[in-house]
C-alpha cells in the first residue's frame, strides 16, 4: 500500500496556535496577582521586577490539554516555596514543614493559577493534577509566555509553555 504524505498532519501541528497569540504577559500577571492575594494574603503583592532564581529552584505546574497544549509552571527558590506554604497555611502551618506540605501548597497555587490561565485560552481543555519538582523543559521558545516577579523580594517565575515539539528520546 502506498502512503501519500499529504502534509496534513504537519499542517495540523503547524496550525496549533502559539501561546503568545492567545495570552499576554499582563494577563498572566493579573491572574497570578489575584491568586496571590486570595491564597497567600491580602497584602501579598507580586512586583513585576525580574530577579535571579536560586541555583536549586523548585517548580510546581499543571498541564493544560486542549486546542493549546502545554504547562503552566511556577518556579521559585525552595526557601521561598516554604515561605509561601507558611503564608498559605497561616496559623494552621505546622512548626516544621515537611517536603509534602510544600509540594501540596505550592502545587495548589500552581493549580489555581493554571486553572485561570486555562480559562483565558480557547477551550474546551483539560487540566491535570499539579506536579512539583524540576520544571518541564521549554520545548519551543516561541511558544512561551513568561513573567518574572518578586514576592517579598524573592524571585518567582511563571511560565505558560507549549508542549511541542516532543522531546527527543534518550536511551
Amino acid at each position: 500500500m502506498t502512503t501519500i504524505d499529504s502534509g496534513e498532519r504537519r499542517r495540523a501541528v503547524d496550525a496549533r496556535p502559539l501561546i503568545t497569540e492567545l495570552i499576554d504577559a499582563p494577563t498572566v500577571e493579573s491572574i497570578a496577582g489575584e491568586a496571590w492575594i486570595a491564597l497567600v494574603g491580602e497584602d501579598e503583592v507580586l512586583i513585576p521586577i525580574p530577579g535571579d532564581l536560586p541555583v536549586d529552584p523548585l517548580s510546581a505546574w499543571v498541564d493544560v490539554v486542549g486546542p493549546w497544549t502545554g504547562s503552566v509552571v511556577l518556579t521559585t527558590g525552595r526557601r521561598t516555596a516554604a515561605e509561601l506554604t507558611r503564608a498559605l497555611l497561616g496559623p494552621a502551618a505546622p512548626a516544621e514543614l515537611e517536603d509534602e506540605d510544600v509540594a501540596d501548597a505550592f502545587g495548589e497555587i500552581a493549580n489555581v493559577v493554571g486553572g485561570n490561565v486555562k480559562a483565558a485560552l480557547p477551550g474546551p481543555s483539560g487540566l491535570s493534577l499539579p506536579d512539583v519538582g524540576d520544571a518541564p523543559a521549554v520545548r519551543n521558545p516561541a511558544d512561551l509566555c513568561r513573567i518574572d516577579v518578586l514576592w517579598r523580594g524573592q524571585p518567582v517565575a511563571i511560565s505558560v509553555q507549549g508542549a511541542l515539539p516532543a522531546l527527543p528520546l534518550t536511551h
Binding site: A35, G115, N116, G123
Partner: peptide
Amino acid sequence: TSESEHTQIVRALAAGAHEYVIKPFT
C-alpha cells in the same frame, strides 16, 4: 474549584451541584 470554563460550570450544575465557586476565592 479552579475549573472556570463556562462549559465546565454548566456540566457541574447539570450534574446536580447547587453552587460553583471559582478558586481563588475570598
